[in-house]
Simulated scan of single mutants.
Amino acid sequence: MMEPISNQDTRLEQLSQSVARMPSLSVTMMKVLEICNSPEASPDDLNRVISLDPVLAGKVLRLVNSAYYSLRTPVQSLTRAVMLLGINTVKNLALSAAVLKCLEGKDSFRGLSSNDFWLHSLGVGVASKFLAAELGVPLADREEYFVAGLLHDLGKIPLNREYAMEYSMAMKKAEEENRSLHTMEEEIFGFNHCLVGEMIINKWQLGGLFLNTLRHHHRPADAQGDKRSFISIVSLADFLINTLGIGSAGNPVKNQDILPALIRIHDANMDQSSLYSLQSAVLEEIEKAKIFLQISQ
């Protein structure tokens, strides 16, 4: 086994400082999250906050009038747009836009391809939501799966930004040796992108569900209780998107070994063949959802 290139604690401290320098989520975004996380939240409450942010308001109107929703009559009222989209969809659009804005810039992606990374992330988000529906998750809860899938690999961005040469080497060796990227990260750095993702979630105060997803999405069996099922759906989605070759977050391995364990977690009518049978439907949803990523950017 390779020795980490330099002291693990030193690298973690450098990454901690790098994450600390990242922009915080905007005041508008924090208010949106506060409203959406309140059981008494209403579309009117959300509309009042969004109306004060012309850029976000424009994104909401673009989304509701996009081909994704295929409405017969254009919507010009922000209030009606929020009502049609629903609180969770608007929250997730706002959060996606905020995350992409915080991570934009030519130095954010060096060893990784920005377009491939976000396409992979979008694919995992869409597939997570789709699988959640297949496994009987209530409609109101499915948007959380989309965001978790979209965010699951965020920790790779500071790693590849701060250590571009080493990260490129990790990706190359993972491909040459047909091994997963996160295990190669552990050999080279002494830790992997899951730990760095936790730092970002903590900085942005996005809550325990997303934190646990970023922490355990490669080993969902390690998660506690009810979180295990949620995380394993995101892991199933990650497996499916890697299999389909949609975008890339640098991982050359489809990790077939994890699939039976993920399916067992759900104890549902889901096996390898039924997972693969969803491919065409997932691909269709991803094509439609690309407008979501375009609007967020």
Rank of each mutant, 00 (worst) to 15 (best):
M29P: 01
A170S: 05
V60D: 04
S51C: 09
I291L: 09
S168L: 00
S180P: 00
I263R: 07
S42T: 15
I246H: 05
V32C: 14
M199T: 08
S114L: 10
I246Q: 02
K173W: 00
L211A: 14
M83D: 06
P220V: 13
S229A: 12
F146V: 11
V126N: 05
S277Q: 14
R62Y: 11
P158R: 10
I295Y: 12
D222N: 13
S70I: 03
I233D: 01
S168P: 00
P23F: 07
S6D: 07
L15G: 12
C36Y: 05
Y276K: 08
L159N: 02
F130K: 06
F239R: 09
A164R: 07
Q294K: 09
N92Y: 13
E134L: 04
L95K: 06
I157C: 09
P252Q: 03
Q14N: 14
S66I: 08
P23Q: 05
K101R: 13
A289P: 00
L240R: 05
L244F: 03
P74G: 13
F191A: 10
P158W: 08
E143H: 14
V99A: 08
R72V: 10
L293V: 06
Q256E: 09
R264Q: 14
N178H: 09
G136R: 01
E3Q: 10
T73N: 13
G111M: 06
G245S: 02
T79R: 09
A221G: 11
C194G: 05
L262I: 01
N178M: 10
E166W: 07
N37D: 11
C102Q: 10
I201F: 09
L95A: 11
K173S: 00
L131C: 02
I87E: 02
P138E: 13
A97Q: 11
S296K: 03
I241P: 03
S273G: 04
L150C: 03
N251C: 13
N202D: 15
F210I: 12
V282Y: 08
K106Y: 05
V124I: 12
D257I: 01
L78D: 06
P4V: 07
T10E: 14
